[in-house]
Design a protein around this nucleic acid. Structure first.
Lengths: 345, 345
DNA sequence: TTGTATTCTGCAATCGATTGTCGAAATTAT
DNA sequence: ATAATTTCGACAATCGATTGCAGAATACAA
């Protein structure tokens, strides 16, 4: 694959005996070029199969019409849906997406962010990795004059644009629903508490217990049970307690809820009559398990569109107004399925 | 968000009273710069929070260390896994990924490809959209000296690098398996026949019937049933036939297999005893339905890595050897689950 | 001290597109 | 026909990093 020489505006100019400036103007549809020459230039460009060199153009213009995205995992449903949503909205405005995955490692996340800064992206959209504690690299993005939008998993101490879900409210509703169904000893599988989303979900859980005057039982709250395997392991322990829970809220993900379901079934617990289960995220499979799993839908693709639109909106104001940190909160929706229908309605 | 001026090598040069050349050399770890000045430059770069402008660098160097990817849908399991695989392999070599989705429209696909050409990507990795018939835009990629790798859904008439699954063989094995389980009237849900993958799957099906001396029954072969809805619709018709099939091979996707399962269950057909079902792709949910669905795993993430490595390998040879069209075929694996266990082993 | 080799550094061109400035040509007004 | 105005296109600088070439500085040997 030898690198054939590509036609440039100079080639077009030379062929027509004019200067590159005119070619550039014609290609950018400027008025300051004769209608006829413009047509001629366009025709010649077509003939020579000319393609603009975006690199050169961006270098000159000082921006790249590119948005960088950093997520923990590209192939996780929630994230790929958000990305698809962003893509849809940005595509129309001729923006490109550069996508990186941090693989849940802050080290890699930092490298990704640096690459994106080097690339002169106009905006970085990020959902931070699970092991993050320090956010200097995000501050750095801001220092370079690059727009930064955090979503879902956000570093709350950083004042940036944020698009999040109302985790606390969703969690509160989910647990309230379970209580209303008659569950009394509801266990919480919680995620790493350095992430705001997991803290908020816990608060929602606690608030619901409080509202219904249920006691907080420490042995029913399990830290760090946020994968299928960890969820399964936690369930094994919980269901072996002298007083096991009658419901488990896998606030971390549907995957951990799936772990719960499998272990519970294997141990002979009937779902939902003996054990209620609620997950988080509305992964496609939650509809297909038996019983189907109650969960929370985060409107992931809509979230992506929201992120993109937020960016465009901020761009329009960029000259006039000093950027204020803005937070858009999307209200997730509780999807009630069989796994929590103790009443059997 | 005002665009703060970023530090350049000139800023560093000025501060140290040297020229930008030396700074550049130091940053690229060239030998032709004094050890001490090199250290000083590196230190100053750090202090000024210097970040290389990749745009300028790439423009000068004539390549972008970027790979463009075009897939029908980012958020489809198979594709997002392939992308994740590519990302993993390319990340280590400091390559970036620009990702586009064609949304199954060839028009958008063409636009995406053009954007990527403009971006001077070094390689384009593509799985074509379902409505594709003309592949001039892919030829154009080649004409611009850009490496082109097709995967999964490939335009077979174009001589490029390809990474595909052995669809024919996989399909043959799946149908053979069903026949061996005792199914005799096996229906085929086929995908749009302009795509090679679907043609190959049909051939595999036909070959299996032939091998076992089963007749080809036209009314059991349904065109264009490649979504969940179309699969469901097709099943409704099939199961209403005077002589309905005793098995359905949803060669298009697991989604259509899911449609089959739901309709069959609703119509009172027992799976697998009265009706066998086999899907394609090994989507996560196939394990979770009841009964779980027999399907074919395509090693998607491995496929991604293979694609990336193929590119790097070709790059190494690029000077010496003329590029020959090369096809890497990955053998998918039949995953036998409950939905085809007529024998009940 | 002179000569040769080696290490370092600066100059200037280059990648391709864009854009402010200025003068020439064409058009309109007087 | 002359002046005033508009339209058009060329020139050259610019974006930031890289690199071939040449010359300066230093080290070392004779």
């Amino acid at each position: 694959m030898k690198n054939k020489k590509r036609t440039t505006i100079y080639d077009i100019a030379e062929k027509l005996n004019i200067t590159a400036s005119s070619v550039s103007r014609a290609l950018n549809n400027s008025n300051y070029v004769n209608e006829n020459t413009k047509k001629l230039i366009l025709k010649t460009a077509e003939e020579l199969n000319y393609k603009r060199n975006t690199l050169a153009s961006n270098l000159r213009k000082g921006h790249s019409k590119t948005i960088g995205i950093v997520v923990p995992r590209i192939n996780q449903n929630f994230f790929s849906n958000v990305i698809a949503g962003i893509e849809e909205a940005t595509y129309q405005k001729d923006y490109n997406l550069i996508i990186c995955q941090s693989s849940e490692s802050q080290n890699k996340e930092i490298k990704c962010v640096n690459t994106l800064i080097n690339q002169h992206v106009d905006c970085i959209v990020i959902s931070v990795s699970v092991d993050g504690t320090d956010y200097q690299h995000l501050q750095n993005v801001l220092d370079h004059g690059i727009q930064l939008i955090q979503f879902d998993r956000v570093a709350d101490e950083l004042e940036t644009l944020k698009v999040i879900n109302d985790n606390e409210q969703a969690s509160f509703e989910a647990v309230s629903h379970m209580i209303e169904q008659g569950y009394k000893r509801i266990s919480l599988l919680e995620g790493p508490q350095n992430l705001q989303i997991f803290r908020q979900r816990k608060i929602g859980y606690l608030n619901a217990l409080k509202k219904y005057d249920l006691p907080i039982i420490d042995e029913l709250i399990v830290e760090n049970a946020w994968t299928k395997e960890l969820g399964a392991e936690a369930t094994r322990k919980l269901l072996s307690l002298s007083e096991p829970p009658d419901a488990i809220f896998a606030s971390t993900s549907d995957f951990s809820a799936l772990g719960v379901l499998e272990v519970a079934t294997a141990m002979g617990f009937k779902v939902p009559s003996q054990l209620g289960i609620c997950g988080y995220s509305n992964e496609a499979f939650t509809e297909l398990t038996s019983p189907s799993i109650t969960t929370i839908d985060q409107f992931s693709s809509y979230m992506g569109k929201t992120i993109a639109n937020l960016y465009f909106q901020e761009m329009e104001n960029k000259e006039e107004i000093e950027v204020v940190p803005k937070i858009i909160s999307i209200k997730p929706k509780l999807i009630i399925r069989s796994s929590t229908k103790k009443n059997g309605d």
